[in-house]
Amino acid sequence: DYEVGESVTVMDGPFATLPATISEVNAEQQKLKVLVSIFGRETPVELTFGQVSKI
């Protein structure tokens, strides 16, 4: 299970290999909103559970 505030690594898509912090969890739809730090700015990205891995 994923929790808000948890650190994960993006495994898929254009942000693969980047660390991210979970900002929202939708367990019903198996989706997460995460904040990816790009060029010093936090960018919100919506991903599925399968696109991230716990650190």
Rank of each mutant, 00 (worst) to 15 (best):
T9E: 07
P44D: 09
V8R: 00
V36N: 00
L18V: 05
P19W: 11
A20Y: 02
E46S: 08
V25S: 03
P14M: 08
L32H: 01
T9R: 12
E42G: 05
L32P: 00
I55Y: 10
L35H: 07
G13W: 03
G5M: 04
F49D: 01
V45S: 04
Q51M: 08
E24G: 07
E28V: 10
D12M: 11
V10I: 15
T48W: 10
Y2I: 03
T21W: 10
G5I: 00
L35V: 13
A16V: 08
K31L: 14
Q30S: 09
E46Q: 07
S53Y: 08
E3S: 12
I38E: 07
F15V: 02
P44N: 12
Q30P: 02
V45A: 08
A16Y: 06
P44W: 15
T43H: 15
V34I: 06
L32C: 04
L32F: 04
V36Q: 01
G5V: 01
I22W: 01
Q29Y: 09
G50Y: 11
L18S: 06
E42H: 08
N26C: 11
V8P: 00
V52H: 01
V34M: 04
A20L: 03
S23P: 00
Y2W: 14
I38V: 12
S53Q: 14
D1R: 13
G50D: 14
L18Q: 08
K33T: 15
V52C: 04
K31S: 11
K33I: 15
I22D: 00
E24R: 05
E24N: 07
A20Q: 01
A20T: 03
E42F: 11
T17Y: 13
S37R: 12
N26P: 01
A27D: 09
G13K: 01
V8L: 04
V52E: 00
K31W: 12
F39M: 14
L47R: 00
N26W: 14
E42V: 12
V36E: 01
V36K: 00
T9N: 07
A27H: 14
D12E: 14
S7N: 11
F15Q: 02
E6R: 04
L18C: 10
E28D: 12
V4E: 06
A20D: 00
E28L: 11
G5K: 03
Q51P: 01
T21R: 12
K54P: 07
K33S: 08
F39V: 08
S7E: 13
V10L: 05
N26L: 11
T48Y: 12
S7I: 15
E28H: 10
I22N: 00
I38C: 09
G13T: 03
F49P: 03
L35A: 05
T43R: 08
S53H: 10
V25H: 02
E42R: 06
V34A: 06
Q30E: 09
E42W: 14
T9M: 15
E42M: 07
V10C: 04
G13A: 02
Q51L: 04
V8N: 01
I55A: 11
V4R: 05
Q51K: 04
E3T: 12
E24C: 10
E6Q: 11
S53M: 12
G50A: 14
T9A: 06
E28F: 10
G5C: 06
I38Y: 12
G40E: 06
P19I: 15
E28R: 09
G5A: 03
A16C: 08
V36D: 01
L47Y: 05
P44G: 09
D1P: 14
D1E: 13
D1Q: 14
V52P: 01
Q30K: 12
L18I: 06
L35N: 08
Q30N: 09
V52M: 02
R41C: 13
T9S: 06
I22H: 00
L32I: 08
T21L: 11
P44I: 15
L47V: 11
F15S: 02
D12S: 13
S37C: 12
M11S: 08
A27R: 14
V8I: 09
L18A: 06
V25K: 03
P14D: 07
T21I: 15
V8G: 01
D12F: 14
T17S: 13
S7M: 15
G40F: 04
A27V: 13
V36L: 09
E42P: 13
V25T: 04
Y2F: 14
S37Q: 13
V10D: 00
L32T: 00
E24M: 09
K54W: 05
F49C: 03
M11W: 05
N26H: 11
V25A: 03
L35D: 04
A20V: 05
L32E: 01
T17N: 14
T17W: 12
A16D: 05
E3M: 13
F39Q: 13
P14Q: 08
Q30R: 13
K31R: 12
M11V: 12
S7R: 15
E24K: 06
G50L: 13
F39S: 12
T43I: 15
E24L: 07
G13D: 02
A20H: 01
V4A: 06
V25Q: 02
S37D: 10
G5F: 04
E6Y: 05
E24T: 07
L18H: 10
T9H: 08
A16N: 07
M11Q: 07
F39A: 14
G5P: 01
V45T: 07
S23I: 15
T17I: 04
E28T: 09
V52R: 00
A27E: 11
E28S: 11
G50K: 12
G13Q: 01
L32D: 02
E46R: 05
A27C: 11
D1C: 11
V10S: 01
V10G: 00
F49Q: 02
T9K: 09
G40W: 04
Q51G: 04
S7Y: 12
T43Q: 12
T48G: 11
T43Y: 15
N26G: 04
Q30G: 13
K33L: 15
I22F: 00
G50H: 11
S53V: 12
S7L: 14
Q30T: 06
M11D: 05
S37M: 14
A16T: 08
E28P: 09
F15M: 05
A27N: 13
T9C: 11
Y2R: 02
A16E: 06
G40T: 03
K54A: 06
S53W: 07
E3V: 14
T43W: 15
N26Q: 09
Q29T: 13
P19R: 14
M11Y: 04
I55V: 11
L32R: 00
D12N: 10
E46Y: 09
A20I: 03
G13F: 03
S7W: 15
S37F: 14
D12K: 08
N26V: 07
E24Q: 08
F15D: 02
L35C: 09
V34Y: 02
K31T: 15
Q30H: 09
I22A: 01
V45E: 04
E42C: 12
I38T: 08
Y2L: 05
S53D: 07
I55L: 12
R41H: 13
E46T: 09
N26E: 05
V4H: 04
N26Y: 14
D1Y: 14
E46W: 09
F39D: 15
E28W: 08
Q30M: 10
T21D: 03
V52S: 01
P44H: 14
P14R: 07
L18M: 13
F49N: 03
V45L: 12
P14T: 07
K33Q: 11
R41V: 15
I55N: 11
L47P: 01
S37H: 13
P19Y: 13
A27Q: 12
V45R: 03
V4S: 04
S53C: 11
T21F: 08
V25Y: 04
T48F: 11
L32K: 00
Q29D: 11
R41P: 05
V10R: 00
F15I: 02
T43A: 06
E42K: 09
S23E: 10
T43E: 13
K33M: 14
P19G: 09
P19M: 15
P44E: 15
Q29G: 09
I38D: 06
T17D: 09
I22K: 01
